[in-house]
Design a protein around this nucleic acid. Structure first.
Length: 202
DNA sequence: GTGAAGATTAACT
DNA sequence: GTTAATCTTCACA
């Protein structure tokens, strides 16, 4: 089989084992891939949020809380941290930084690339713009559940591929949303999105 | 063992 | 703008 070239290379562990804010920015434009029995779905990451445990009141791992839920964040980067929120929706995070650094990046929105029919079936809608424009929605569309908790992103089922490189001036930094309880942490500009992309969440 | 709250979404008024 | 849906996790006893 011919060399696929850099645009389809799987992202390596070393990418994730770096500073969380740097990884967050560089995640934009990359392709999220999930292989399931029903088929393959791919989406371009267009919006993310960083959660840096020890100093981030919004993070589940704030103050180095280490529970059965957050423990995956204490390992190496490059693993999936999936949790159920409000009893109904799953949210997918990518664990970043090195061992004993409980940090992660929440995937908030992707642009559907492959397996769009499957996404429509799972989401029960034909509106492409609404398939993956939110953390709960993209997990539903791509079939990501807490069964994927701890999955190795350097494995074969759930991983990232190189995508387009997003120029700095197209990266929008804004405050995170829906975390008003987090006091001063809610003002951090830790939400990154691709400027003008119509698939980001509302 | 018991209870409160949440990194959301869709459907309402 | 407001609210219900729905269940795991965490804090406390």
């Amino acid at each position: 089989m011919a060399m696929k070239g850099q645009y389809f290379m799987k992202i390596k562990r070393s990418f994730y084992n770096r500073d969380t804010l740097v990884v967050s920015e560089e995640l934009l434009g990359k392709t999220l891939v999930h292989v399931t029995e029903e088929g393959v779905t791919k989406g371009k990451i267009v919006e993310v949020e960083a959660y840096i445990g020890p100093n981030d009141k919004a993070a589940h791992s704030y103050g180095n809380r280490n529970s059965s839920r957050t423990k995956i964040q204490y390992g190496e980067g490059g693993y999936a941290y999936v949790y159920l929120i409000y009893g109904m929706y799953n949210c997918m995070n990518i664990v970043t930084n090195k061992k004993d650094m409980p940090e992660a990046v929440l995937i908030r929105a992707v642009e559907p690339l492959e397996g769009i029919e499957l996404m429509k079936k799972r989401r029960k809608t034909d509106n492409i713009k609404k398939l993956c424009n939110g953390p709960g929605k993209l997990c539903q569309a791509m079939g990501i559940t807490k069964e994927n908790y701890g999955d190795d992103l350097c494995g074969e089922l759930l991983y990232l591929e190189e995508g387009i490189v997003v120029p700095k001036k197209q990266i929008l930094k804004t405050k995170r949303i829906n975390i008003d309880y987090a006091e001063e942490a809610k003002d951090y500009l830790w939400r990154f999105s691709i400027k003008g992309n119509s698939y980001v969440s509302k």
